[in-house]
């Protein structure tokens, strides 16, 4: 059985990575002019609600060409 410290050890890096990725992706969504394969709202929802994979999929397939607002 996992105790509390082991659980924290397992979950802490995953949660940290998830939060950092989501924040970076949201900043990118609202700063860039437009997104590929969908609009900003759809990508923001995906980034917020799909854990870890959402921001990664956004950076690979949704991030615009870098025209910042």
């Amino acid at each position: 059985m996992m105790n509390m410290s082991e659980l924290l050890l397992v979950l802490a890096p995953v949660v940290l990575v998830e939060i950092v990725l989501a924040v970076l992706a949201l900043i990118s969504i609202f700063k860039t002019h437009g997104c590929r394969n969908g609009n900003k709202t759809v990508w923001a929802v995906i980034v917020i609600f799909v854990q870890i994979l959402g921001p990664i999929v956004y950076f690979l397939f949704g991030k615009g060409d870098g025209n910042q607002q």
Binding site: V10, I56, F59, L60
Partner: peptide, 16 residues
């Protein structure tokens, strides 16, 4: 383009 960061994060997760 965050590709390098994504690769490092994914490989970090793969490692743990």
């Amino acid at each position: 383009t965050m590709k390098a960061v994504i690769i490092c994060i994914l490989f970090f997760l793969l490692g743990i």
